[in-house]
């Protein structure tokens, strides 16, 4: 199929490859991978819309959303008055500790066994089904490539690699002299696997199921922690309650009157420093106000900025 004419240049070996390889291997492998990816995505959509998506019960939703509520309190708590913040903090930490928001409060201290919890079981089955559906096409294609397209080099990589990759990339063609840049079809398959991910995002929009990589990482995570699947909300709640207890409250509106008055030039910037950064920020802000305020205030501010 190919005659090999080794050039005398030591720098880069150039092989003459039959154009038939390009037509019948290079392009087809790429096309097949793209099509299979699209097919997988569409099938996932079809399967996903089926009876497998069981609607979560109100209690389950409540369980997971209350975590977000704690996070929102932590993130934006400085915008509400201290007493309200304290009320909510106490209420939520108590609720988390007592397990008020858990789906079945009885199972609070038992480790969640995915076998007995029916919804957890379903979720695990779902995940496994999806993973298997993803892995099968990949293995099939790999087998197909190994069967039909082994024993010859396919393409030259434009960039050099170390010798260690030689055995992996030149699977069927064990020659001691050939450059590592000449690779077999299996490595072309891997190249496509990585490179086509962003193309799939382009073609199919975000969150498509054609992405084999994501499933592989998910698989490896799952095998690492088999009980990870139905999340243990009690632990999460306890963690969140600890986070909440540690959150301080520094009220946004603490010195808002002074801020407002100084914005209109009625007040020199208060030298009450609560933190060095705020001081610098406030001074900068005052400087900006001084230079860019409306014409009515320019007179006042100029006088004031002279004093700084």
């Amino acid at each position: 199929m190919s005659h090999q004419v080794l050039s005398t240049l030591a720098e880069s070996q150039s092989l003459y490859l039959d154009p038939a390889i390009r037509d019948w291997v290079l392009i087809p492998i790429m096309v097949v991978m793209v099509l299979v990816g699209v097919l997988r995505d569409q099938i996932t959509v079809l399967l996903g819309g089926g009876a497998s998506t069981k609607k979560a019960t109100l209690k389950a939703i409540r369980e997971s959303k209350v975590l977000m509520r704690g996070a929102a309190l932590r993130n934006y708590g400085n915008h509400i008055p201290p007493s309200s913040f304290l009320n909510r903090k106490n209420y939520l930490t108590n609720a988390y500790k007592k397990g008020d928001y858990l789906k079945n409060p009885a199972s609070m201290n038992q480790t969640v066994n995915p076998m007995t919890d029916p919804q957890g079981m379903e979720m695990m089955m779902e995940g496994m089904k999806k993973n298997i559906a993803m892995i099968i096409p990949q293995t099939v294609i790999m087998g197909w490539i190994n069967f039909f397209f082994s024993g010859f080099v396919l393409i030259k990589l434009p960039f050099p690699l170390t010798l260690r990759f030689k055995s992996m990339l030149q699977r069927g063609v064990e020659t001691p002299d050939m450059d590592v840049t000449w690779v077999s079809s299996l490595s072309w398959y891997f190249l496509n696997l990585f490179g086509l991910r962003s193309i799939f995002t382009l073609l199919l929009g975000e969150d498509n199921a054609a992405d084999g990589m994501r499933e592989m990482t998910a698989m490896s995570q799952m095998t690492a922690s088999p009980t990870g699947q139905p999340q243990d909300f009690h632990k999460l709640h306890l963690a969140e309650s600890e986070n909440l207890e540690l959150t301080p409250h520094s009220w946004e509106l603490n010195d808002i009157e002074h801020r407002l008055l100084s914005r209109y030039g009625k007040r020199e910037q208060q030298k009450v420093i609560d933190s060095p950064e705020n001081f610098i920020e406030n001074n900068e802000k005052n400087a900006i106000e001084a230079t860019s305020s409306s014409s009515e205030h320019k007179g006042k501010n100029r006088r004031k900025s002279g004093k700084h």
């Binding site: 790429m30 393409i155 990589l157 960039f159 990585f194 490179g195 086509l196 962003s198 193309i199």
Partner: peptide, 9 residues
């Protein structure tokens, strides 16, 4: 990765 793929191709 896409760059490398198309570059090679």
């Amino acid at each position: 990765f896409s760059y490398v793929l198309f570059w090679t191709l």
